[in-house]
């Protein structure tokens, strides 16, 4: 484990914590896309199928449990919690899941590292994770007025994959380990999708102004 991987994991963890903080303490999920949250729940459920069979380290197992538990509980809060669900922007969050899920599944069946159930599911989770942020970005664009926690959530979520890319480069040069090109492409796509958001995030930060996306 190198510093970039750890920083990436921590950024990812913080993004989830920021979101849970918003939901738990403010009892609001305004500006958060349930579609994106449901996609992440699917991503973790299909990626961590090996959680009990492929033991890497206690760290890995605990983090997997955290991501699985948090993603499903966020979905539960947004759908069923009697106060939280009232703040959900249902009418604005209209992105349809299957437009992303179906192509990712087909692509995973066609392009994968190995044609086994676990590998296809693992590849599917990578493809889906790369695009899962899209409903959230669409919602941000529509909501216009983005609160601080929501902005930080999306920023941390985007930064996590960017740090993973640095980690892959580092591992490529320092270890015998290299990640598959599928992982590279997905990681790059995922980061690039956030690039536009990053730009406006830094602009608002630099000018000390409230984050707003252009129409």
């Amino acid at each position: 484990m190198n510093i970039f991987r750890l920083a990436g994991d921590m950024t990812h963890l913080f993004s989830v914590l920021v979101l849970l903080l918003k939901i738990h303490t403010i009892k609001s999920c305004a500006g958060i896309s349930l579609k994106t949250q449901e996609l992440y729940a699917i991503v973790f459920a299909t990626r961590y199928l090996d959680i009990f069979t492929n033991h890497i380290s206690p760290y890995n197992t605990i983090m997997k449990l955290i991501f699985l538990g948090s993603s499903f509980s966020i979905v539960w809060y947004m759908r069923y919690h009697k106060i939280v669900r009232r703040s959900y922007d249902k009418d604005q969050d209209t992105f349809r899941h299957y437009i992303l899920i179906l192509p990712c599944l087909i692509l995973a069946l066609l392009i994968n590292e190995k044609f086994t159930f676990k590998e296809v599911m693992w590849t599917f989770s990578l493809y889906l994770e790369a695009v899962a942020i899209l409903p959230q970005l669409v919602l941000l664009q529509r909501t216009r007025n983005i609160d601080n926690l929501t902005g930080q959530y999306v920023f941390l979520l985007g930064a996590y994959r960017a740090l993973y890319i640095v980690n892959w480069i580092y591992r490529y040069f320092t270890e015998d380990h290299f990640v598959h090109w599928i992982t590279w492409v997905c990681g790059l796509v995922q980061t690039l999708l956030c690039a536009d958001f990053f730009y406006y995030y830094f602009q608002s930060w630099k000018n000390n102004m409230k984050l707003q996306l252009p129409a």
Binding site: R5, I56, N60, E113, D176, F178, H180
Partner: peptide, 10 residues
Amino acid sequence: KGGSEPHDEL
């Protein structure tokens, strides 16, 4: 060994 398996990242 090389390669990305077993998947040791999150």
